[in-house]
Simulated scan of single mutants.
Amino acid sequence: MGFKLKIEKFDEYLEILRHEYKVYAPVKLRGKGTFTDTDTIRYQEIKSIEEVEFDLKSSFSPKEIILPITQTLFYFTEKDCIEPKFDEKKILIFLRSCDVHSMMRLDEIYLRNGNEDYYYKTLREKVKFVLMGCSVSFENCFCASMGSNKTEDYDMYNKIQGDEVFVNCKSEELMKYFNEDKDCEVEVEPEFVQTNEIVVTIPENLDQRVNKSKMWDEYSQRCIACGRCNFVCCTCTCFTMQDILYKENKNVGERRRVWASCQVDGYSDMAGGHGFRKDKKDRMRFKIMHKIYDFKKRTGYHMCVGCGRCDDICPEYISFSNCVNKLNKAMDEVE
């Protein structure tokens, strides 16, 4: 059972909630797209439910909220290391089912991979999820094939219809902010897509023999190693380290971790000049196999959630879903 409120009334409760929470949601940024007359949809802090873009898929994933693009790990002087202060406010994120599933992948890597990542955990423990339903499948989505089109792991569900907001709140902590009248109670169930136009089939016999297939050769010419697919992906987690030295005193500065991409030149370089996966076809093979083979062998489920953002962003129109489907013929080839 849920309830409904007028948008104005919901925003009043949201303003009270914002005293303790930073509220993030996908927002349409007009004129901020690839070209000057195009828009983009990106996660930003909001003050009103009307700012949320419910009808279009976000161009970037919500992972940058709990896994910042650039994050200072500590400041250092000649004698001391100082931990940066974290914002005391909690975090509320509006996201779709596939992105809820992606958070489980991030948790697997940063919390259940042998050692807990302190910086990720500090932010992750403060997060609550507001589910956004999907009444229709978006372009390039294949979430149904990856089993991420539905979820029960959310704290609240919101939907706007006309001038009303429909709410299904599962969190007692969040519920205390909404002192709705009993007359407003209605049945509210999340909307989930059942099928996508794009269907992905992963070979049941997939193994590392596919690495020798000729299917990877085309990506040496097509891929330009820009790394966009990694940066919009909601489950990519790689980063590199930077030491920033201050001009006033080169013994004083800060250490940051910054997002990195397995597709760009230099990512796999080692001391001594040796580098793995110098060819772009090898990088593409590594990414694909990690998303649908290596990760599953360790965890029991696929890393990719089928959001399709990598297909949306690629300037060379390389399709992740098409590449995965080609693996079926590739396995026949190697066998």
Rank of each mutant, 00 (worst) to 15 (best):
K212Q: 14
K212S: 14
K212R: 14
K212C: 09
S213Q: 12
S213K: 14
K214W: 08
M215H: 10
W216R: 11
D217Y: 12
D217T: 12
Y219W: 13
S220V: 06
R222C: 10
C223G: 10
I224Y: 13
I224F: 14
C226H: 11
C229K: 08
N230V: 05
F231K: 02
C234N: 14
C236D: 06
T237W: 15
T237L: 08
C238K: 11
F239I: 02
T240C: 03
M241Q: 09
M241I: 15
M241F: 15
M241S: 08
I244C: 09
L245S: 05
E248C: 06
E248L: 08
E248W: 11
E248I: 13
N249E: 12
K250A: 02
V252A: 02
V252C: 02
G253K: 09
R255N: 00
R256H: 04
R257A: 03
W259Y: 13
W259S: 06
A260L: 07
S261R: 10
C262F: 05
C262L: 06
C262E: 05
V264C: 13
G266Y: 05
G266P: 01
D269Q: 09
D269C: 02
M270K: 09
A271N: 08
A271F: 04
G272N: 04
G272Q: 03
G273L: 05
G273C: 05
G273D: 05
H274T: 05
H274R: 06
G275E: 13
R277V: 03
K278T: 14
D279A: 15
K280N: 11
K280Y: 11
D282A: 14
D282P: 07
F286C: 05
F286H: 13
K287P: 01
K287A: 01
I288Y: 06
M289A: 07
M289D: 14
M289C: 13
H290K: 01
Y293M: 10
D294C: 01
F295N: 02
K296T: 10
